[in-house]
Design a protein around this nucleic acid. Sequence first.
DNA 1: TCCATATTTCTAGAATGACAGAACAATTAT
DNA 2: ATAATTGTTCTGTCATTCTAGAAATATGGA
Lengths: 99, 99
Amino acid sequence: MEEKTIIAALSALAQESRLRIFRLLVTAGPAGIPAGQIAEELAIPANTLSFHLSHLKNAGLVAARRDGRSLIYSAEYDHAKAVIDYLTENCCSRQPCCQ
Amino acid sequence: MEEKTIIAALSALAQESRLRIFRLLVTAGPAGIPAGQIAEELAIPANTLSFHLSHLKNAGLVAARRDGRSLIYSAEYDHAKAVIDYLTENCCSRQPCCQ
DNA sequence: TCCATATTTCTAGAATGACAGAACAATTAT
DNA sequence: ATAATTGTTCTGTCATTCTAGAAATATGGA
């Protein structure tokens, strides 16, 4: 996984609203939540939410699918896991130490 | 773990130089690396490195100990793991779905 | 077709962050 | 003491990010 990809994901999550959005979607599971409902639950104006959602989407952390007038967002678990794994990859490879 | 703590850690890592520093320290293990050697390996000016290291330290991701004139930095594995765990906590709790 | 609903894009101002030069602080050796 | 080494803090500049108002786009219903 590329460094730029990781940085995009981390900076996407390093912001209060976006971290809350992502965690909300993680708890929601694959079914996801429509944008309007996210805006309501987190009390974020629609346009501001859209800005944050596109940030998360560019980072590959969420996906969107259309259902009628609604756009339903859901977490991209695999991508999130890949980011997480990158952080501790090659742990202690310079020295024999921890497990 | 508090939201602010998580955001501090994520934004600390969401930057090219700091991500490289952190990964370098992760590979180094508990023994750590002196600041000067980090600066040399990553080709970062001493004062700029210091700026980034203090950012990582404030976020709880690295620790520093003095050895003579050198300050030796090392990764704080437990804190990093706690941040990582936070991201996927309560996965799918709103619906029965994935494991 | 015309309107309401759901969401995004455009825009601009305010706030925050990165960077490196210069000065400062701490430690060790002579 | 004085000087050399190792890092940090101070400073200002430039760039990026957050936020929300207003306008635009897409879908579905009357």
